[in-house]
Computed example of a mutant assay.
Amino acid sequence: MVFAHDTEQSLVAAVTLVNTAGPPDTLETVADLDAYYERFEFTGRHERTRAELEEVRALRLALRRLLTADRDTAAELVNAMLAEARALPRLVRHDRFDWHLHAVSADAPLVSRITVEAAMAMVDVIRADEHSRLGVCADEDCDGLVLDLSRNRSRRFCSTACGNRNAVAAYRARQAADA
């Protein structure tokens, strides 16, 4: 484990949210947002409205900026996000999760909680100088984000589909060269 469980969970949730922008866009309905909320085991307020969905969809660009920024810029963005949300870190324990950080109340809007959780996770990335674990997919036709939590830092593609597509292309190129 590179980071604490809540940091990893928040980073995966942020990268996943950014990557829903696609193509194709996979966060188009309230049901899609419900599935995202449940997948990442968010707690607290969830209005299940179109307005909430649009707020979360709009957040994707800011999170992309944060996750692809250089270390110094990311620190500035984190500070701004935490200040805007009036974040006050505190330790909490709930459900199946042991002690971890929350920095806004459970009744804060979902978009605020996602923002603050991503910003708090980036605090750990910045402090540990692990920014190289975040990048853009190596597939030339994809701009998805990659979070590499592997021990040997070998992850290059945002998804199995991109990895497979590139493996097949490399295989075909080798076959053509041999022919």
Rank of each mutant, 00 (worst) to 15 (best):
P109Q: 12
T160E: 05
V104I: 11
T7H: 00
V111D: 08
H46F: 13
P24D: 13
E54L: 15
L61T: 15
A179H: 14
V15N: 01
T115K: 08
D25P: 01
L91T: 04
T73A: 14
A170W: 03
V92K: 01
V18P: 01
R156A: 02
D178P: 02
R151L: 13
V125N: 00
A69Q: 03
A58V: 13
V12T: 06
R96A: 08
V30Y: 02
A62C: 11
A14F: 01
L17W: 02
N166A: 10
L134W: 03
A106T: 15
N166Y: 08
A106N: 15
S105L: 15
H100R: 06
A170L: 12
A4C: 02
E140T: 07
D141V: 12
T115F: 15
D72N: 13
T43K: 06
V56E: 03
T7V: 05
A69V: 06
E52C: 11
A80H: 08
A161T: 12
Y171M: 15
R151E: 13
T20L: 09
A83K: 07
C158L: 05
L88C: 08
S159W: 04
F157W: 15
R39S: 13
A176I: 10
V18T: 05
A167S: 07
T73P: 13
V92E: 06
S150I: 15
A80G: 06
P89C: 08
N19A: 09
C158E: 01
M81Q: 10
M120I: 06
D139S: 09
E28M: 13
D148R: 03
E76W: 04
R39M: 11
L147F: 09
P24V: 15
V123P: 00
L66Q: 00
A35F: 01
D98K: 06
T68W: 03
V15H: 00
L88M: 11
A179F: 13
V136P: 09
S10C: 09
C162M: 07
N79E: 09
M120P: 00
T26E: 04
G135S: 13
R57E: 06
V123A: 07
E55M: 14
T115R: 12
L67M: 10
V92H: 04
M122Y: 02
D141L: 10
T43E: 12
V30A: 02
W99F: 14
A176P: 00
R155F: 09
A167H: 03
S159N: 06
M81S: 05
A83Y: 09
L91Q: 03
A58I: 10
T29N: 05
A121Q: 00
A161S: 12
A74K: 00
D124S: 11
G144R: 03
N79L: 03
T160L: 13
